[in-house]
Write a protein that binds this DNA or RNA. Sequence first.
DNA 1: GTAGAGAAGAGTCTACTATG
DNA 2: CATAGTAGACTCTTCTCTAC
Length: 267
Amino acid sequence: MIQEILARQQHESWGAKVIERLSKDLRRDFPEMKGFSARNLKYMRALAETYPDELFVQQLVAQIPWGHNVRILDKVTTSQEREWYIYKTIENGWSRNVLELQIDSGLYRRQGKAVTNFTRTLPPAQSDLAQQLLKDPYNFDFLTLGQDAHERDLERGLLVHIRQFLLELGAGFSFVGSQYHLDVGGDDFYIDLLFYHLKLRCFVAIDLKMGKFIPEYAGKMNFYLSVLDDQLRHPSDEPSIGLILCRTDNQLVVEYALRDVNKPIGV
DNA sequence: GTAGAGAAGAGTCTACTATG
DNA sequence: CATAGTAGACTCTTCTCTAC
């Protein structure tokens, strides 16, 4: 049917109101069926035009709900990006609202962009996966924090909105604790947020910094990760990963700071 | 031949509704 | 109450036709 719209639009010259007429005809002939509004037919037409490859449609497009496809057609312009969002929707089971949120926040462009030292500190398979999971920047717009908020405020905010925070982090993160206590020979240390990643099979320690990145953070994180690996890590777990979230970073500084750190850290 | 008006297509935003 | 399907209303684009 869709092919027919395309064909008829080609045949009958411009301005023949092809879609509108077809919509009327269909609604008259099948009054019990819904979904034949001119608007919806245009979506169908757009879909057929966007994905001319039938096999592709069956394998991918058909796996997500119609409403999702409509949103993707509406909001995403390049076919590469569309395909990517479809894959992610299937993979993560996003609802329409979540999908829209991810598209609006430009997830596609942020994915895998964080500066890390994973390629050097992790085995190849692990490092690719870990790199993919980190974004730059993370978007915490759901928090309404003032300019002068402190790390604790940020942390508290993230905990209150833990659901949205997990969503922003991505699939697979499971929350272990906040201000996670580490006892090192009688001295006390606290990790801001501790997660376990189900796919990577490792702990992910998150350090929150309100200001811009400074090299000392990497050293501190390196220390935390050593302690984590010794005290908490199960022999079958992969090495723990550290993530430093700060307001801004200077790529060059981060790269130098991470160069000689032997634990996997992302900023 | 081309500028401009008018009409329809294309795209976007949003809200209503059914359903489980 | 969250999710997914649907479509109205709006703006922007594209096309055609006519007058000069």
